[in-house]
Amino acid sequence: MKKTTIATSLPLLVSLGAGALHAEGVVNVLSPGGSVYEGGNAVLWGPAGEKLGIEVRSETADEGLPAVRLQVGSGSVYSDIVFLADYEGTLGGMEGILEPIDYSIVDKSQFMPGTATDYCVGVYGYATVMAWNTETYAAKAPSSWADFWDTEAFPGRRALRGNPETQIEVALLADGVAPEELYDVMSTEEGLDRALAKIFALKDDISVWWSSGAQHAQLMRDGEVDMSTGWNGRFQSAMDDGGPVDFTFNQGILATDCLGVPKGAPNKDLAMKLIAEMANPESQAKLTEYISYGPVIPAAFDTGLIPDDVAKRLPTHPDYLNDLIVQNIGWWVENNDHVRELYENMMTE
């Protein structure tokens, strides 16, 4: 507790001192702690605030959207910028507790399509990918979701997520649906049935339904399963630990974390300006020093600020851009409840 207080108050005091000289105003930023907070202060809102002469007060909260709900619900909004998952950004917009992003100020054109949404501006991207055991498949490695389902060419145990989000997409890709038609197919009951039937057909070979990132990394590192769906950062650390693991970004599902502005934020206009200021390739490139997720402004890879070996591990690297599918998070916000019920029925059948 004490450590956090000191860590939070120190930069605050520093920025107070600096801001007193030429303060245009104040912006309160709420972010999760750890590397996001550290990186944000160092390369995102920190420098942007300095440049604009805005005093930035940085605070931490474990969960973004619940904090916004609380502030807006109680009528005392004090955060101007909040760090959210893209799912939260879209849900918050639907719930009417976020301000629409002012894209007359924020340059949307530099972002990867789908990573700057109506209520949230992307900061970095992470991907749901396919990982496999390099010893089991030493002769030939699987390379697509179709291979993940091909139990004859690639016999072995699988792990899928015990939550349909990203798994429905993956099943349909394996069944031959083109990426650009993915969400159209998912929007029909037949499409959903098709995805669920595809997963059900693989069920005998699914030995674990994972529920957390730590779990799927562990399953792969221990060789408990031979193939798994999961998040690139987790598999990367399993590889770094020397586990017999490899993964591909091919047909990976990209999701983002992003910045939103709570409804009725006291310094809304300054917040928009600040978000616009930090939405630049250099800042996003520098953020990779703190977080092993990929910039969502493609030009970040041309800045020369990201070392080649690091760049190759990031899901948004230009080499993988055509392989990845940006998740339609709005679809999930609307359909989550229904699809989860169907998925549970399939899992317990």
């Binding site: 030995s207 674990v208 339904w209 994972w210 989550n336 409840d337 989860r340 899992m347």
Partner: peptide
């Protein structure tokens, strides 16, 4: 059941927890 069942054994308490995050 959550750890040793590996998602293959779905019990009521797990469902209660999931319902909290779904709805």
């Amino acid at each position: 059941p959550a750890i040793l069942g590996g998602g293959n054994v779905q019990v009521i308490s797990m469902r209660i927890a999931r319902s909290l995050s779904t709805y």
